[in-house]
Design a protein around this nucleic acid. Sequence first.
DNA 1: TTCATAATTAAGAATATATCCTATCTAAAA
DNA 2: TTTTAGATAGGATATATTCTTAATTATGAA
Lengths: 147, 147
Amino acid sequence: MKKDNKPAASPREVFKRIGLRATPQRLEIYEILNEIDGHPASEDIYERVRKRFPSISFDTVYRTLSQFEKHGLIKKVHHLADKTRYDTNMMHHHHFVCVRCKKIIDFTWEELDRVPMPEGVSQWGSVEDRYVELRGICRDCLKEGKE
Amino acid sequence: MKKDNKPAASPREVFKRIGLRATPQRLEIYEILNEIDGHPASEDIYERVRKRFPSISFDTVYRTLSQFEKHGLIKKVHHLADKTRYDTNMMHHHHFVCVRCKKIIDFTWEELDRVPMPEGVSQWGSVEDRYVELRGICRDCLKEGKE
DNA sequence: TTCATAATTAAGAATATATCCTATCTAAAA
DNA sequence: TTTTAGATAGGATATATTCTTAATTATGAA
């Protein structure tokens, strides 16, 4: 979706490149994602597609969003959203998260903790915690990928 | 749970302080949280409590974990775990998240992006993204709290 | 243009996670 | 002890997501 400067490719070109058919439903979802503000849940998209495709199913929306995410057109805000996970370590720390197997590794990063807050944050509200997530592929998953 | 130096208070003292009864189920869950490694889901806890309380219900586990979280004994790894939310902004950016209303505000933070990776990260795996989440209460929710 | 085919879809069933309801029980204060 | 607000078990319910299947359709090849 929204990418800097780059000349905007047409939806059909994008779909062709990643090997997805240009169905009307898919084109509509693509367009909505380009228009919509904020960080929509699947249901938000579903509600909007239904205006033009009243009989579209939840499944189509979910599937399409997953495909788009898989091909890097959109991202999930969080990678561990399937179920609630608790942290029993109450000391300030950050996480390395494997986006493949969801493994989490705790670590501290004092140098980063010391960076002063960016401009304008205070006008959004009060900040109570600064959390960093390093996202990547863990050692185990890297090995698997090679085998 | 795991807190630095501080002299470990007994579970009963902790419960007294926050106004929760010291029931056997609750004591057991507390103990499990202190023993368990990693970042358990509710179901992980449920499976372990069942070894000593075979008839305990999911509800008790969920309720207890929520209470513990509310009183700051444990934390959720993520605050938006109820449903998947997508990000259509594919430019590198970070988030301010209101832990009360779940509002998300995008922002960039170049100074933070420049901080060199901490020691030892490379041995965990390959890092592909550095994501920062500033967690707090947004302006709107702060106002509501006062009214 | 027509055709063949694999991809896609709608619809509803199925699954997974989380919460609610209510009768019963119990920890803890008096 | 007795009292009672808080806690629990178990089942029902809600919500989010994925699966199954039969029908449809976009796309490349003829």
